[in-house]
Nucleic acid binder design. Structure first.
Lengths: 135, 135
DNA sequence: TTTCACTTTAGAATTATTATAAACTAGATT
DNA sequence: AATCTAGTTTATAATAATTCTAAAGTGAAA
């Protein structure tokens, strides 16, 4: 993705193409493969690579702005709380983000027909299906 | 579940049945339905219900001890960091907890044959399949 | 009943994230 | 081009969830 495309992408998302946003956007989107990161890891990479210093809070702001604009997705469904479950059997969950409530789904109520094989020397430990709900 | 069972359960898991553990275990396991909670919410409920005061750190310790013993499962796979993904299309993930690495799975590589319908007045927003890896 | 490794406790520390408020800037208006 | 202004960036403080620490307490083995 060219710089000009990034400018377009930002403008079309009503994000002012500031120096920082352009720099972060170039870093994130000028690549061939998918890129997974946390704000913290992105920040470290930016510090290494970039000439100008970008505040951590700006990285948070920018990442969330990109997310709101649909340029990034967040691989996290439950906020930052850890839920525990007295049901230790293999099962799945509905998650209602309105009420921050988890609902069990019996393992038998979901059948997965096709599944990819694990990469390289890895094995599949378990498969969790998470169904997010809306009203 | 009776108190005596809880004592057995703890002993068999090599957890000393201390006053606090028994109290928390009774609260968690002497019920018919699955119970979902966070340490914080559990702590609040314990403060309300219990006679003796239990330190928050003890609730953390105890919950993790129960988890290690297999009496509780943790509905959370990625620690407490939020990952972002430059791939905004609908897709799934492998998660390698050894390396804390996410790997994309194309939406077409997973086919779900049977899925439960959403509860009460809710709709399904999206379905996330999370495949945990081991070595 | 003594002993000691395991526990509990209060509070400090850490980590991830969000809020704040002052300084800055892209782009519209003059 | 100079001015204006809402949106941005920044350093820092605040918050929230969780873990650490070190001292005091306690099951249960001997």
């Amino acid at each position: 993705m060219k710089k000009i495309d990034i400018l377009k992408k930002l403008r079309s998302s009503r994000l002012r193409p500031t120096k920082q946003r352009v720099e972060i956007a170039k870093f994130l989107f000028e690549r061939d493969k998918t890129f997974h990161f946390t704000v913290e890891s992105l920040n470290k990479l930016l510090i290494k690579k970039s000439t100008s210093r970008i505040a951590l809070a700006t990285v948070y702001n920018t990442v969330h702005a990109f997310k709101a604009a649909g340029h990034l997705s967040e691989v996290e469904v439950r906020g930052n709380k850890t839920y525990f479950d007295t049901n230790v059997s293999n099962h799945h969950h509905f998650y209602d983000s309105e009420t921050a409530e988890l609902i069990d789904i019996d393992a038998n109520d979901i059948i997965i027909q096709k599944i990819p094989k694990a990469p390289n020397g890895k094995k599949i430990k378990n498969v969790e299906v998470f169904i997010n709900l809306k009203n």
